[in-house]
Design a binder for these strands. Structure first.
Lengths: 342, 342
DNA sequence: TTTTTTGCCGAAAACGTTTTCGATTTGCCG
DNA sequence: CGGCAAATCGAAAACGTTTTCGGCAAAAAA
C-alpha cells in the first residue's frame, strides 16, 4: 500500500500540505520554484489523490451514470462505446446499469445513481416507462439528465435523438419511388415513441403519395421486435396478402426474420417482395440478400449525449444558467440488395 | 438539495450522531427503543448516507472495475450482463472500460481504476497483451483481480474460463464421428490463448482418431476473426481443396462468413461441406442453414467471475487468506442443420 | 449500605483533501 | 528609514462518516 498522501510529500519537502495542494491546483500564491519542487516530488513519489477525499470535499464524483434497456444489442453497444470514449476524454468514469425494459428497475437505478452521487445521468427509457417523476426527481436534485434514443418529450432536459418519423418517411418514400405499390409495415409495440414515430412516418409517406393507408397491412411485432416476430408475421403476411411487394420493418432484426421466411418459401427478394430494415446493424450485410436499411449513428448519439451532459455538469458547477438542447442526428438510407431490382 | 445527514436526524431526535450511526450499523449498545426512533426518522427524512464520506472513512468504494477488449460483441455483452446482475445483487457498482484490444490502453485503464480505488478488477485481456506487470501491480496493491475468458495462466489470481481446447476437441470429434473425413480449421490469430487452444483441440482430435494433421487445411483469420475473414478464406478453401467435407471455425462469425460464401457458390451445406462454429451466438439460428456450434455460457462466466471477485474483496477486508480458484465452465455442442446430414 | 455489573449514550479523533483567511517576509517607493 | 504593497506561505476549518473510548446511570450483587 504505497499510497502517498499530500502530507507525505509536504513532509518530504519541509512545507505544508496547504502549499502542496495549492501548487497542484494552480493557485497563484505559490512561487514558481516551490511549485516545481512539488511537481517533481509528486511524480517521484507517485502521488495519486485520494478520490474519496476529493469527492467529499468538492462534492462531485467525476462519474456519470448510464441506464439503458439492454446491453446485448448492437445499437446500445455502439452508443455505450461513444459514451465511454467521450467520458474518458473528459476525465469521467461511467457507471452502467440495465433496466431490462422494466420501469420499476429503472426507477430503482436512478435512486441508486443519485445515492452514489454521480455528477450526471444518461438514460434511454425502458419500454414500460410512462411516468417520469423519477427523472424529474434527479433534475430537481441538480443532477443533470440527458435523454437519448428512447426519450420522453415531456421531460425538461437535453435530448439526443434521431428523427424516427422522418427516417421512416424517407424509407417508405424511397420504396414508393422505386415503384413498389403495396407496402406493408411490421411495426414495434405501441408504447415506445420510436415505433410510434416510425409507424407515423410510414403512414404519412403513403398519404403524401396518394396511396391509401390500409391497416391490415400493418403487423405488430411486440415480442421485443426481434427475429421471431419478423419470421412469424412474415408467414401471416404471405397468407393474407398475395400482392404485397415490399415490407418496411421497424428493425433490422425483424427484417432479417422476414428475409429468412421468404427465403425458405422461395419467395424472391426483392423481385417478389422487397424488404427494408432499420438501424444498419452490421448483420444486415451478412445475410442474403444484403439488407437495405436506415443508418442510425449509435456511436455519435452516445458521444454527443455524453458531451452535452458533461457540459451541463460544468455549467451547474459554475452556477451558470443551463440551456437544454435537443439534438437530432441525421440518418441515411443504406441501399443494398433487398430493395434493388435490376 | 434535500440531503439529510446524520447530524440532521440526530438533531431531530435530540441525540448524538454517534448513536444514530450506531443504530444504523447494528451496534449492540443502543437501546431497542432509540434504534426504532432512528430507523423511523431515517425513512421519514429520507436519509441516504454520503458515499464519499463513507468511502473515505472505510477506505472502500463498493465499486468494481471491468476491462474488456470490446463491448460490441455478443459474447462480451452477455458477460457484462452477468457481471452487472451479480454486482447489483451484492451491492456493488461497476465501472466498465474498453481496451479496444490495445495493450497500452489496457495498462492505462488499470492505472485509472486503481487511482479511483475500485475494490476489485475483472479483466479479459486484450489480444496484444503479453506482459502482465500491470496486472501484478494491482494484485500487489491488494486490489484483487479476476481474469476471465482471455486469461494469462502465469498471473497468480482467480480465473473463470471455458476449456477451449476440450470444446474444440469435442467439436472435431463430433464431426469425425458423423463421418466427415477431411476437416479444415479456420483459426484465430496466434497470440490469444483462446485460438491457440481451439487449434490444439482440433489437432489433437484428428490425431486421436488417426487422421493425419495437414497444416494446409488450417486457415488464419487474424483480421478480428470476423465475418470477412470467414468469407475470404472460404473462397481460398474451395479453390485449394476440392475434397474438404467439413470446416471447424474459431468463431460463429467466421462460420457465418463461410456459410455465406458457400451459399453463394451453391455449395450445399452440409451435404458437400459441413460447418461448425463456436460461441452459440444467437445469430447462428438466424442464418440458413442454422449453425451447429459450441455453447459458451457468457452470462454465467460474468456472474461467476464477479461473485469470486466480491468474495475475495470480503476476504481481504477481513484479513483472511484468499485462495485463488480456477473455474472451468462447461460447454456443450449445439447441433443444428449445418452439420446434420439427413 | 457499598460495590460491581450491565446497559446506554456521547465526545472526539480520524480518513485526505480543499479553501479561507490571516501571517510573514520581501521589495519598493517616497 | 518608515510605510505600503506584493509575494509567499501555513493554520485551521470543513466535508460526513465510523469507531474507540470513557462516562454515567440504573440494576444487580455483595
Amino acid at each position: 500500500m504505497n499510497d502517498t498522501r499530500l502530507i507525505d510529500i509536504a513532509a518530504a519537502l519541509g512545507i505544508s500540505v496547504t502549499t502542496v495542494s495549492k501548487a497542484l491546483k494552480g493557485y497563484t500564491d505559490v512561487s514558481a520554484i516551490t511549485r516545481a519542487r512539488v511537481l517533481e516530488m509528486v511524480t517521484s513519489m507517485n502521488y495519486k489523490p485520494n478520490v474519496n477525499a476529493v469527492n467529499l470535499r468538492t462534492n462531485e464524483t467525476k462519474t456519470i451514470g448510464v441506464i439503458i434497456p439492454t446491453m446485448v444489442h448492437h445499437f446500445f453497444s455502439s452508443v455505450l462505446n461513444g459514451i465511454l470514449d467521450e467520458a474518458e476524454n473528459r476525465g469521467y468514469l461511467v457507471i452502467i446499469l440495465q433496466s431490462n425494459e422494466k420501469y420499476e428497475l429503472e426507477k430503482k437505478q436512478i435512486a441508486l445513481l443519485l445515492q452514489k452521487r454521480v455528477d450526471g445521468i444518461l438514460i434511454s427509457l425502458s419500454n414500460e416507462t410512462d411516468d417520469f417523476t423519477h427523472i424529474n426527481e434527479a433534475i430537481k436534485k441538480n443532477t443533470p439528465v440527458v435523454l437519448f434514443d428512447k426519450i420522453a418529450k415531456l421531460v425538461n432536459c437535453s435530448k439526443v435523438v434521431i428523427n424516427d418519423r422522418k427516417a421512416a418517411y424517407d424509407a417508405v418514400t424511397y420504396l414508393i419511388e422505386k415503384g413498389y405499390k403495396k407496402i406493408a409495415h411490421f411495426r414495434g409495440s405501441y408504447t415506445p415513441q420510436n415505433s410510434i414515430d416510425r409507424f407515423l412516418g410510414y403512414k404519412k409517406a403513403l398519404e403524401d403519395h396518394n396511396i391509401p393507408y390500409d391497416s391490415s397491412l400493418v403487423y405488430l411485432c411486440d415480442h421485443n421486435a426481434d427475429f421471431e416476430d419478423g419470421y412469424a408475421n412474415a408467414q401471416k403476411l404471405v397468407n393474407d396478402h398475395k400482392d404485397v411487394d415490399a415490407v418496411f420493418a421497424v428493425t433490422d432484426l425483424v427484417a432479417i426474420g422476414i428475409i429468412k421466411h421468404l427465403n425458405e418459401m422461395q419467395i424472391k427478394i426483392p423481385e417478389q417482395i422487397a424488404v427494408f430494415g432499420f438501424s444498419n446493424w452490421f448483420m444486415s450485410t451478412v445475410i442474403s440478400p444484403k439488407l437495405t436499411t436506415i443508418d442510425q449513428p449509435g456511436y455519435e448519439i452516445g458521444q454527443r449525449a455524453a458531451s452535452i451532459l458533461i457540459n451541463e455538469i460544468a455549467q451547474i458547477k459554475e452556477h451558470l444558467p443551463v440551456t437544454h438542447q435537443i439534438i437530432e442526428l441525421p440518418t441515411q438510407i443504406i441501399e443494398r440488395e433487398s430493395t434493388l431490382r435490376s
